[in-house]
Design a protein around this nucleic acid. Structure first.
Lengths: 196, 196
DNA sequence: GTGTTAAGGCAAACATGACTGCTTTAGAAT
DNA sequence: ATTCTAAAGCAGTCATGTTTGCCTTAACAC
């Protein structure tokens, strides 16, 4: 029985995966827009065939690398107050957008998405985390803005700048956070007072 | 004298340019993420060499095509009132983001930007137009939000959705416009009362 | 340890993209 | 009409990415 585990995630496999991810990112950061597979392989100390067999195309690889790297950044904070959480989160996003890795991965992610209308996996994960943060605040009795507001009025301005390579001045994230909090309390779409 | 015009924009040259632009866009729309130059050339009924000599790389070509196509969409409206202008503009942007061309060109534009931190040319043009719109409103005596607000709280949410392939529900643009207008009047950064 | 077998490496074949020198075409100026 | 020449076309060369069959390595199970 016990279906003898068809896959082998441990050891070498994981090592190669890591090395390749690192190599792609390094290449992208160093301005290699094309990011040809043979180059990546060389840099990772891996045979090109391995990459072709595992990821198939460069787009797939980049997508995988980007998602898995971006997932690691900016965990959702828990400061005890909604204001604190949102500001800390926004500041965290801002900081991460100043890292060269992110600056190059975000556009790459956008570019690598096929025409297939798949709302970026990466974003969905973030949204779920934010939901969680707001829910906790609501349970504390605070009235919170809808997640969409955080998406539209905090994340969007920050991401747009990152994607279009417009520099982000320090404190911009915090300002956006404050603004969202300032205007939403009048519209408690969740929290104790809820009504619709 | 008269420096016998070193360039020849008329006739054939322009025709080729148009054909090539159209071909790239068609290919991108049809899901050809790679958009290899020979393919484009074939589709445009043009010799690959012509493309190599004129644009050099696919990235350059895509950038050129995207900018020149995007420039043509969404002219700045003039309805007589700030509210009308902003809403019309936002609605226009929303509509343009629903066109397949734009949906594919915007990501392509982001992707094609080199690592060189050049704030998208395309965006700069738009910003100038918006400035103009606001200035006219201000001269009418209306108090207007700063351009950045339009960028951050109307354009950014719309663009983010387009870039990440999240569907935009009808009326979203108008709602964003209304929201920006609702909250800004308290902060007349220009308009009749303005100084500096 | 031993056996099994994903996953990686290797090398040769294959396909396709990129570049170069030269010729031809067709705007623009006279 | 004639001339001049930027820009396009063509063909051949070169370089590089992609694929494939076969062999080797090293996780995992026992």
């Amino acid at each position: 029985m016990t279906e003898p585990s068809r896959t082998r995630p441990g050891g070498r496999s994981a090592r190669v995966r890591e090395a390749v991810h690192a190599a792609v990112i390094e290449l992208l950061v160093s301005g290699e827009t094309e990011a040809a597979i043979p180059r990546i392989a060389e840099r990772a100390g891996v045979n090109p065939t391995s990459i072709y067999r595992r990821w198939g195309t460069a787009a797939n690889l980049i997508l995988d690398a980007a998602v898995s790297r971006l997932r690691a950044t900016t965990p959702v904070p828990d400061t005890g107050s909604l204001r604190g959480d949102v500001e800390a989160w926004a500041t965290g996003v801002e900081r991460s957008l100043n890292a060269p890795d992110t600056q190059v991965l975000l556009p790459a992610l956008v570019a690598a998405q096929g025409t297939d209308a798949s709302p970026a996996e990466h974003l969905l994960v973030r949204l779920a985390d934010l939901e969680q943060m707001l829910t906790v605040a609501a349970e504390r009795g605070e009235s919170t803005p809808p997640v969409e507001d955080l998406l539209d009025h905090v994340l969007a301005p920050l991401y747009l700048r990152a994607l279009l390579r417009i520099p982000i001045e320090p404190g911009f994230g915090a300002r956006l956070a404050a603004r969202v909090l300032r205007e939403c309390p009048a519209d408690p779409d969740r929290g104790v007072v809820r009504g619709d």
